[in-house]
Structures are given as C-alpha cells and as structure tokens.
Simulated scan of single mutants.
Amino acid sequence: MVELVEQIRVVDTDTHVIEAYDLWTSRISVAKYGDLVPQVRWDAEAEQEAWYFGGKRIAYAAGSCMAGWHEYAPDRPRKLAEADPACWRAEDRLKKMDETGVYAQILYPNVAGFGAGRYLTLNDPELMLLCVQAYNDWVVEWAGIAPKRLIPQMAIPFWDIQASIAEMDRATKLGHKGIVLCGAPQDFNLPKLSDPYWDPFWAAAQERNLPVNFHIGTGDMWVFDMMHESVGKHASFAAVAPVLFTENIQVIVQLIFGGICHRFPNLKFVSVESGAGWLPFALESFDWQWLNSGVHKEHPEYKLLPSEFFKRQIYGSYWFERKSLHSALDAIGADNIMYETDFPHPTSMSPGPATIATSPREYIQETLGDVPRDVAEKLLWGNAARVYNLD
C-alpha cells in the first residue's frame, strides 16, 4: 500500500522556529541599547540557558525544543545543544520533514510570543520595531535553504497600525506569506479586535492578499496560574493546553459578530493550534444566538449566517484528533480544516521516549487512509495552498 504522504505533498500549517541566540544582538546595536536587546544568558539559579528581554528573563531558551526529548513536559533541555538539531537548524529540519512525510511547513515565531506581545516589554518604540524587523529578516534567511518548503509568517508591530502596514509591504517583499496577529490586543491596552480601529489593518491585509493568523496563547496567559500547586507540575502543565486550544473562539466570535468578515469578504483568517473538533459546536451556537437574539434584524446588511461567514473566510487546524476530526468533517466539510504538527513544542506530534505521540506519517495514514482522496488532499495540501498562495 502506498502511503498518503507519498501521494500528497503534506503542508504542516503550524510549526515553530527556535530563534538563533544571536538573532537580535547581531542585528541591533548593543552599544546603543545595551541589555535591552533580546539575548540569551546562562541562568545560574535554574542552571539553564534563558532568554532575556529588556534585561528580564522571559523564557528558558531550549524550553520549546521538546521534539524527541526523553522527559515529560514541563521538564525540558537545559541547553539548545541538548535538543534535537531539527528544532533549530534548518538543514536538520528538512531531514526530519523528509523522514516524517512532511513536504512544507508554515513557520511561526517562538520566543517573542506567538503574537509579538513580548516586544512591548521593551518599552522603547524604536527598539520594538527594530526587533520585529530583525526577526522577519532572520526567519527568511533561515528558511532560504528551501523557500518552497519553509514558509515564514511575518511578525507585526501591532501596537502601531501604520508601522504594521509598512512592515507588511517590507516583509512580503522578503518572502513572507502571511501575518501573525495578537488575538487579544486588549491585554496590551489596545482596542479589541472588534473595534473599527483595526479596519485600516484589515483593509491593508485584504488588499495584499495576506492571510491573518491567530495562534493560541497570545494574551495574558492566565491559564498558567489556573491550577493549585498541590496538583503537581505535570498535571498543572497538561491542564493548560486544552483550555488554550479553544481560546480562539473569542477571536472567531469577534471576526464574525463584529462585522469584520462582512466588511472584508476576501480576507482569510486562520485559527492556529486550536483543533477542529469543537468547531461544529461553535458554529451551531453562533447561528443559534445570531437568530435567537435578532442580530439578523439589527444588522440586515449581514447577508450570511455566522457558519456561512466561517466557511467563506476562516480556517482551523488539527493534529491529534481522531473521532472528533471525523465528526467535524461530517458537520462542516473539509474546506476549512488544515493539518499541522506544532513541531517541536510540548503539545506537538513529535514522538519521543516520554510521549505517546505517533509520527505524522503514521497518524495521517491512520486517520485519513479511508477517507475520499479529495478530502485528504484538501486537509493535507489544497486548503493550505489556497490560504497561503503556495505554488
């Protein structure tokens, strides 16, 4: 039997680059900005390499390199050198992709936050913009070894709309295929997504045919304090992800009920690392409340139901689901769902001695081996090619 990954070029729509330790210090003047420039130092107390933004420790440097790691999260490599090189070196990433049957990866940032929120901790607008630009430059260089297989999504200085639009143009010329936007700007003292304040941003993205990606975990991350310490570190860590998976329901609600999909009908939105099984429930509840509360009367200009706006413009991604994947396909179809792995994060489809994960090759065959070929092609390739304008 020929495996699906040998028949269809698989696009993994959510992976993360592990930023080089000199990404910012090699591109931004340390002489001018000093310790404010993001950098890695050895944390003697924790005995780990750590990232410092504005002189404050914000993350352990190898903490996201869990692919193939021999301990359960939140235990992690202490140094980047202890992790699988495929986490951080492009040449090894391509080899890992070939082994697991993945042709291309959509690349998301890591250390500065999944929506660029950590740059705001620097409290210097000039430096914040330089940091965004340095990341966008670096990730294109990192992906340059195989630009049709490693596909960057740009960071945006979302605290300044005009600067964001300028960066859209600059980063697109570099080779970026989409935008990563914070899903909870109100957590950073900015207007909510449903505020018309953002209309110039949406208009610019639509005009440039750039999809807007909302990765989970871009807000204040209160969920990390959700559990009492008595439950243990592994239970506390494991409890976070299921809550975050459905976090983007707040984003989708604002896009639809806030009229953004109506006003910008050609703009595509992606809910990243969020799963697909909950989408049918969400869409049914949207339609019910829309009609039951008279939204169609209040806004007669909205000619579609929420589920119809979703099917026209919004996409979800999945990577571990089995039964719920198939129920989602039955309920909403295959046109708005894409496959991902979240490599190399703790919740990823990255098998190692301490996990139950299967490889993408095995998982894809197990879950899609019996579905119609056109359905498998949409989930694994076609939808991503359409959203990200891939060759």
Rank of each mutant, 00 (worst) to 15 (best):
F201L: 12
T172I: 13
W69G: 00
V223I: 10
A354C: 10
V10I: 12
D124K: 06
A384P: 00
F286G: 02
D287Y: 02
I179G: 05
H299V: 08
E366F: 07
N110I: 00
N123R: 15
S348C: 10
V10F: 06
E71P: 00
H345S: 05
Y60C: 03
Q153Y: 05
I18T: 13
G144P: 04
T358G: 13
A357W: 06
V243L: 12
W42D: 10
S307V: 01
P346L: 06
S348M: 09
A134L: 02
D391N: 14
Y21F: 13
K268C: 03
D75S: 10
F158P: 01
L279P: 00
W288L: 12
L390N: 06
I151T: 04
E99N: 09
M349C: 10
R27C: 09
A67N: 05
E366K: 14
R373Y: 13
G175R: 05
E366W: 08
P147L: 13
Y33S: 09
V2Y: 03
P300M: 04
H326T: 07
I252W: 10
K233V: 15
M221V: 09
V5R: 08
D225V: 01
G113H: 01
E207N: 12
W138M: 11
E247N: 02
P109F: 02
N123D: 15
I156H: 04
I252V: 15
L244E: 14
K79M: 11
P300F: 05
D342Y: 04
D342G: 03
D14L: 03
V253T: 15
G258L: 03
S274A: 15
E207R: 11
L190Q: 07
S327D: 08
M221F: 12
P280D: 01
H296N: 15
S164W: 01
F320M: 15
L390E: 00
V30E: 14
A73W: 07
K148I: 07
T15E: 09
A276R: 01
I216Y: 02
G232T: 03
G258S: 11
Q313A: 10
Y103W: 14
P38Q: 11
P85K: 00
V180R: 04
F320A: 11
N123A: 12
E3T: 11
V10C: 08
R89G: 02
V387C: 03
P77D: 05
K297Q: 15
F201W: 03
E49F: 04
Y72I: 14
V251I: 07
S230F: 14
L107H: 00
D124S: 09
P38E: 04
R57N: 12
V243S: 05
K311A: 15
S348I: 06
H228V: 11
Y363H: 13
I314G: 01
H345R: 08
S164L: 09
R27F: 04
G175P: 01
V10R: 04
W51M: 09
P157A: 13
L244H: 11
K378G: 09
V17W: 09
N389K: 11
S359Y: 07
E82G: 12
W69K: 06
P38L: 07
E229K: 13
Q7N: 10
N189Y: 11
